[in-house]
């Protein structure tokens, strides 16, 4: 996918969710979306909006502690996976199939703090989009999608 990068300013968490939902409409099974941005920038909020649009009904919460969450999604997808690799120093120290259950042809996968995955899984991930979120004061965020 070669959409040109665009930058959007959102004024609330709800707007950030809507932007995630918009992006979801362009995704299909096997796609991986990488998200960057510091603490509280709205990465999980953005994923929540996208997951809702993909048919997830469960509460979409932060995956930091468990590293990965997996949600049932609407057909033709089976799953929406949400990973946070912050706590993983490097995938090199882990089993090669550690994240296997969170990737696949019927899964759309969102990865926060993706550095470890990009290094180790380079070439095997089908990165559809990169989303960068930044604080812009109060509830405002500047979100760049490329």
């Amino acid at each position: 996918m070669t959409a040109s990068p665009r930058s959007v300013r959102t004024r609330s968490g709800a707007e950030t969710e809507s932007l995630g939902a918009q992006l979801a409409g362009t995704l299909s099974g096997g796609d991986v979306v990488l998200l960057s941005g510091e603490l509280g920038a709205g990465k999980t909020t953005f994923v929540r909006g996208a997951a809702r649009a993909l048919g997830v009904r469960a509460a979409v919460t932060s995956p930091t502690f468990t590293i990965g969450q997996r949600y049932q999604a609407a057909a033709p997808l089976l799953w929406v996976a949400h990973l946070d690799l912050y706590r993983l120093g490097s995938l090199a120290q882990e089993d090669p199939d550690l994240l296997e259950d969170y990737l696949g042809p019927q899964t759309v996968t969102f990865i926060e703090w993706p550095a470890a995955a990009e290094r180790e899984l380079h070439g095997t991930l089908r990165v559809a989009r990169r989303v960068t979120l930044a604080h812009a004061g109060g509830d405002e965020r500047v979100i760049e999608i490329s």
């Binding site: 999980t44 909020t45 509460a59 919460t61 932060s62």
Partner: peptide
């Protein structure tokens, strides 16, 4: 009830 975003322990850690 449950958390809608971060867990309490995570709020401490972050």
């Amino acid at each position: 009830g449950q958390t809608l975003d971060d867990a309490a322990g995570e709020a401490f850690d972050k």
